[in-house]
Amino acid sequence: MAGTREPFWWSLFAAGGAVAALLAPVQIALTGIVIARGWAGQSFTYDRALALVSHPLSRLYLFVLISLPLFHWAHRFRFTLIDLGLKWSRALVAGVCYGAAVAGTILAALVLIRF
């Protein structure tokens, strides 16, 4: 077994960073601004949204969209805390950050599996 797990976390960080770079702007603009302000008209009523999200491919997409960028956040935030002078042990900082991303991933799976 490898002595360090850093390559594993880094690969999730890199994948999450790529997913966020490709999809976060359009997603934020859609659900956070266009739909939230009601500019989307009839395209995101309850029935339409439910039908769209219930499709298995949509749910897979949403799972990837939520989970991977959370690991991207965890990785960056872990080092940012150290950069800002947090004096905790490095293992504890890593555990808290990646633990939060794992928790978010489990929550996303639980929500998406019920549609």
Partner: peptide
Amino acid sequence: TIDWYKRV
């Protein structure tokens, strides 16, 4: 990272 995945 590629090496690590190969090993695992």
